[in-house]
């Protein structure tokens, strides 16, 4: 897996990615603020509850890259699950949720990695923005991932 930190995430050529950056810049992750802007990209978002022993899905948007890879059914039933079925892929990316949650500082990356989708292997390359989200007094982490390239079949 390759992960490259984006020094200028606002230059990513993706409208939803930039909308998400704009929303975070004005709301600082408070879910109650600028909800019209939030709803533009919410169906593409993943939300995670983060604890010391890992994270669990609060919500997985059906239009997220997870939905593209594993299907909408996985997303609508994702709440409470620890992550993607490919646990090696999940564990590596999951570590950053804890860091973002504790430091309350977003990260932006370009990621390239192999992923197992129900027995079929793909190479995926995507941008992701991982940012703190606040629901009243409860802190969570939001992830917006957008494909940089179409997934490539490896099998």
């Amino acid at each position: 897996m390759e992960r490259l930190t984006l020094t200028s995430p606002e230059e990513v050529d993706d409208v939803l990615f930039r909308r998400c950056l704009d929303w975070y810049a004005t709301s600082k992750g408070r879910f109650s603020l600028n909800q019209n802007e939030l709803e533009d990209f919410l169906p593409f978002l993943q939300l995670h509850a983060v604890g010391d022993n890992g994270s669990r899905y609060l919500y997985c948007g059906a239009k997220s890259v997870v939905g593209d890879l594993y299907g909408e059914e996985f997303c609508v039933d994702a709440q409470g699950k620890e992550g993607l079925p490919d646990s090696a892929f999940e564990q590596t990316l999951n570590r950053d949720y804890w860091i973002v949650s504790r430091t309350e500082t977003p990260i932006a990356q370009r990621v390239r990695a192999p992923i197992d989708v129900y027995g079929t292997k793909f190479s995926v390359e995507f941008f992701r923005y991982v940012f703190p989200v606040r629901f009243n007094e409860f802190n969570a982490v939001g992830v917006l991932a957008r494909f940089a390239e179409s997934p490539i079949l490896l099998n």
Binding site: E39, L47, N136, F138
Partner: peptide
């Protein structure tokens, strides 16, 4: 209302 979830509720019922 407790968690300001109205947008999430709308997204969930649209998804599901």
């Amino acid at each position: 209302e407790d968690f300001e979830l109205a947008p999430l509720v709308r997204a969930y019922i649209s998804d599901k």
